[in-house]
Design a protein around this nucleic acid. Structure first.
Lengths: 137, 137
DNA sequence: GCTGGCCTTGACGCCGGGGTGAAGGTCTAG
DNA sequence: CTAGACCTTCACCCCGGCGTCAAGGCCAGC
């Protein structure tokens, strides 16, 4: 099959496939006219890439999965290298989540403190102090 | 004080201060020679910006805080507009964390499933199947 | 044989936010 | 006098994963 058909069957674009090839991720055979030629196996590889991309994996991170499939294994994650990528990704996600949670708590604490300060002030001086509230109305 | 001194006291660079001015965030008076002139109040504004930047706020999001201080309020978050930014930020952080958690669970599930498949295979056929394991050693 | 639809390579654009760098000139401190 | 700080403007960067032309080849159907 040619590049257009593969792109359509995988729900992507010819530009993307050429890009993958330029990265060495999904090389193609060539017909006599110079056209790229793909088979069903390539479709499997491509689907594997897309699934991982949807997970938020970078292209380079999909490489072990693709090579695993190309080596004849039943699934892209049948190889230890792929499992290692999963684990690394989990650790990254956890690290990001932890940083996020910390910032969240600090912002929440700021909010609570600022609200308390506002209320303490309002108790003493009941007039509204800030005209910046009015936006347009 | 001139731009170099302010930059040094706030732990940033003159380039950054000019950039803030170009964004209208921290305008400066000018001396007769055209040099920017800052005072202690500007240092407070600048510190407010930096604190929020460290929280991961975008520059635009710091604007209400800076304007609140400039309006004479005791703290950058003494104004409702600032509190609103806090709340919006919390909601954003929560949304990001939720998406992150979902991806994390999906990847974790993949890992568990792939490991199970590997073990099931190993029980039947004890030879190592994948030569891609060897990296260099 | 010609039109339209596929294909080829190559090069530049974009997105976004927060800056940074360079060039070329002015001012000041010692 | 001279080094260093300051001024302005314009352009560039970073990052990945493509999109978007541009200019041309190849082939089927009519």
């Amino acid at each position: 099959m040619r590049i257009g058909e593969l792109a359509e069957r995988a729900g992507t674009t010819t530009r993307t496939l050429r890009y993958y090839e330029s990265r060495g991720l999904l090389p193609a055979r060539r017909g006599g006219n110079g056209y790229r030629s793909y088979d069903e196996e390539d479709l499997r590889l491509l689907r594997q890439i897309r699934v991982l991309q949807d997970f938020g994996f970078e292209l380079e991170e999909t490489r072990p999965f693709v090579e695993c499939l190309r080596a004849g294994h039943p699934a892209g994650d049948s190889c230890p290298a792929s499992l290692e990528v999963y684990r690394t990704k989990l650790a990254e996600l956890d690290a990001v989540a932890a940083r996020l949670a910390e910032v969240r708590e600090r912002v929440a604490a700021q909010l609570v403190q600022a609200e308390a300060a506002r209320d303490a002030l309002a108790a003493v001086e009941p007039e509204p102090r800030c005209e910046l509230v009015r936006t347009e109305e």
